[in-house]
Design a protein around this nucleic acid. Structure first.
Lengths: 152, 152
DNA sequence: TATTGTTATACTCTATAACTATA
DNA sequence: TATAGTTATAGAGTATAACAATA
């Protein structure tokens, strides 16, 4: 259960993202790469190794399949991604990042992951404590033997 | 300065917002109120007491003034906000929330501020620690003299 | 003359509908 | 028949340009 303190913590976090400098990090990152925010969002879901079926992208974004076509077209035009055939189902297109796409993604994450100035309000020990707490929250599945897996 | 741990903390936080359940909190909140995401974003910047000049809204969102006209029109249509004359500058429209707008904003914040299930990974003490660290980050300017008053 | 806000218009983003290929 | 993706088209969302009122 989340406590009162926990709820306040989350509220502070939300405000940090909604009001603070994060306001338009994403916009900044996308113009830095020369991509629209929507297409960048797509780029960030991709990987050079594991191909992602377009259908999965649509599901993850809760958007229409036709829009995924638009996104992947945009990424391909810039040479950031490629459509590849699916090994067993010939209806499916598997999307992978090209080397240029990997570089672009890294460049975007440099901007997105850069901590806000307000983090300087914490000393080194406090920053470690914060990290440890967040690691604990984020720990996804790999816990004990087999953790309670529940996908979205 | 932000340490390595601090950067990792921020990265974990970003992932929590980008990938976790927060994915479409905003979308959920806006459909719950029957507002488009853009207009809800406007609503959240407003207040029943302190009127906000439309110009300031445009500046805060880094959007064009004409779009603010669209947003405020939308809020007024639903009875959530009102244009009021500025006391000294007759060019300026000051936007305030109506009682219905206050209720809608509260309803949206209920959804937006609800902590994700992953927060349950922390016990009560850890949640308090997290809150205290975030309070320290968020503390804007008022530090010494005036006591740390923080209402929801 | 410079600034606030509105109107008219155009462009970008995203969805719906109809279609092709494959399962 | 059902599903993955594409194409054509329509609808939101957002900006640009020209304008009226006020400073």
């Amino acid at each position: 259960m989340s406590t009162k303190a926990g709820r306040e913590a989350w509220q502070l976090l939300s405000d940090l993202f909604f009001n603070g400098e994060m306001q338009d990090r994403f916009h900044a990152a996308s113009t830095a790469i020369g991509l629209s925010p929507g297409i960048l969002k797509g780029l960030l879901q991709l990987d050079p190794d594991a191909g992602v079926p377009m259908r999965d992208i649509a599901q993850h974004f809760r958007c229409d399949a036709s829009y995924v076509t638009t996104l992947v077209d945009g990424l391909e035009e810039r040479g950031f991604a490629e459509r590849q055939p699916h090994p067993t189902d010939r209806r499916v297109r598997s999307i992978v990042l090209t080397p240029a796409g990997v570089r672009a993604k890294a460049q975007a994450l440099d901007v997105l992951y850069a901590p806000p100035a307000s983090l300087d309000g914490l000393d080194a020990t406090e920053q470690r404590t914060l990290r440890d707490l967040l690691r604990k929250i984020s720990a996804p599945a790999t816990e004990a033997t087999s953790a309670p897996v529940d996908a979205a």
